[in-house]
């Protein structure tokens, strides 16, 4: 089963959504202003919703083939670090508000292009999940773009913090467009998305928003070494701690119903 393309591809999409939801939810109750506390929590809720649909589908694919019982929760709570297929970007720490915003902007802009293509997937379930999620993601892109502009063109301090966030996060953006084995296989099988084709539109959007935010464009970072590995299960040290917290109850009380 670990070699099944549809299963792995769906898990990858689900893991991205879950891990970013988990990160964003850390802000709940601690946001810089009440309205934005609510907004970031909303995004977190949208992402949990996407993750649940995708895990449910992955479980269905698994159960059909293996005849064993996987559920959305067994997939989220009982796999270990090396089995998680999320990209490195989403597991990065929240840092300050600038870092959280920029992470969201990079990811949502990527997810927007991805889901747009995925709507045409030959896999009807993935296409339907993409279509439904796209409405939410459109809002995530708008919200995070507005904040990038606000911080970039706000005060000297907010501009510096955003540049600092850029230094922290840019190295994780390359992985978004570097296909993992199951992404290539998914493309061949007809239900995946051509990632390299998404890159140009992503860069264009980033440049457009960065220009308004008075930040240097993507070309200025052309030489930055890109980190990869998350999608193949080779993560940063962050993920182990995220899972320790996320999975604690299911690990401490195996088999219990909640």
């Amino acid at each position: 089963m670990t070699k099944d393309t549809l299963y792995n591809y769906t898990l990858h999409l689900a893991d991205n959504a879950l891990i970013l939801a988990q990160r964003n939810s850390e802000w709940c109750g601690h946001g810089p202003v009440l309205e934005q506390d609510i907004a970031i929590t909303n995004i977190s809720l949208d992402l949990i919703g996407q993750a649940r649909s995708l895990y449910q589908y992955a479980a269905e694919v698994f159960n059909k083939k293996e005849g064993r019982e996987a559920t959305e929760d067994s997939l989220a709570y009982l796999r270990d670090v090396r089995e998680f297929k999320n990209c490195l970007l989403v597991e990065q720490p929240n840092g300050d508000w600038a870092q959280t915003i920029l992470r969201q902007f990079f990811f949502s802009t990527y997810q927007y292009g991805l889901y747009q293509q995925l709507q045409q997937s030959t896999d009807a379930t993935l296409a339907a999940i993409a279509e439904k999620s796209l409405k939410e993601v459109t809002y995530h892109v708008r919200w995070s773009s507005e904040w990038v502009i606000r911080l970039g063109d706000g005060t000297a301090e907010s501009h510096d913090r955003l540049e600092n966030a850029l230094d922290e996060l840019w190295m994780f953006t390359g992985e978004l467009f570097t296909p993992a084995g199951y992404e290539l296989d998914a493309l061949k099988a007809g239900f995946g998305v051509e990632l390299t084709a998404l890159k140009a539109a992503w860069e264009q959007k980033v440049n457009e928003i960065f220009a308004e935010a008075t930040l240097p464009d993507a070309a200025s970072r052309a030489g930055v070494w890109m980190q990869t590995g998350g999608k193949e299960g080779v993560h940063s040290e962050q993920l182990g701690f995220i899972l320790a917290e996320l999975q604690y109850m299911q690990r401490a009380y195996p088999g219990a119903e909640w």
């Binding site: 709940c28 109750g29 909303n42 919703g49 993750a51 649940r52 895990y55 996320l246 299911q250 909640w258």
Partner: peptide, 20 residues
């Protein structure tokens, strides 16, 4: 962050957001 299932996590998150 430690809610024992995805459903419970979503409900709790929505609940705390309501308080905000």
């Amino acid at each position: 962050s430690r809610a024992p299932s995805l459903k419970r996590k979503a409900i709790l998150l929505a609940k705390v957001q309501d308080e905000a």
